[in-house]
Amino acid sequence: MKGHFLTALNALAVFAVLVGVWQAFAWISGTPAYVLPTPLEVAKAIAERHATLVDSLLISTTSAAGGLALSIVAGVGVAMIFAQWPWLRRMLYPYTILLQTVPIIAITPLIILWMGSGTWPVTVVTFIICLAPIIANTTQGLISVDENLIDLFLMHKASRAQILFKLRLPHAMPYMFAGIRISAGIAVIGAITGEWFAGSSRVGQGGLGYSIMYASSQLQTAYLFALVIAATVLGFSFFFMVMSVEWYVLHNWHESKRNARAE
């Protein structure tokens, strides 16, 4: 407990020093606010425009969370199919890799072209970039089960469904969470990239990505900083949330979570 407190205190001290240095630099160098606003100006921008800021943040959160959730459902589903039918896996697995290597920036305009603007295409963009890590990791977990355990299940005349749900799936949990952790990080990037292209000024459709574009074109640099902070907070919360769920699900039995419990 004491250790956690000290760590938090240290992190806070580092933050205070950085902000101080930034404020001092802006003052001394006399850089214009549209190039480098001071922390105070950023704080003022947040205070004045917090309503629109929160709106944008909520829109991006919805798209990112929706895309991530869809990719978990679809990714785990595909991985289960891959585990049950190895020939299908051998046939389709290369395309999972392909999915990962397609630059999202390049296909986003296509998706907008097909789906129009708004939050749905943004969710789809997020879904696409989140999918590959979840498929790859979960599949790995489902197929790396100890042969003896499979024999044990066979001795009890287990069906393929029983082996999948009572053996492969629980065994794959730590792998699946590793994949979701990666995807949670990139989900926010996906949403912002999508909004960059698909965002619209219509109320309730802008999102952080659109607002970043807009603020930058208007040289509202202090607000731009506020948006960057919001995006960072969003990414961090996603990561933290996945970590929490992972700990909750795995801490009783999985090696990697033992130390967290021992503290």
Binding site: D146, N148, L149, D151, L152, M155, H156, K166, W253, H254
Partner: peptide
């Protein structure tokens, strides 16, 4: 028949009693 392996081959995500229960559950 029951087969007993060299390593205990327990399911780490199940408690002791749920491990003992496994065969009965599958059957």
């Amino acid at each position: 028949m029951s087969f007993i392996f060299q390593d205990a081959t327990l399911l780490p995500w199940r408690t002791v009693e749920r491990n003992v229960d496994l065969g009965l559950e599958l059957e």
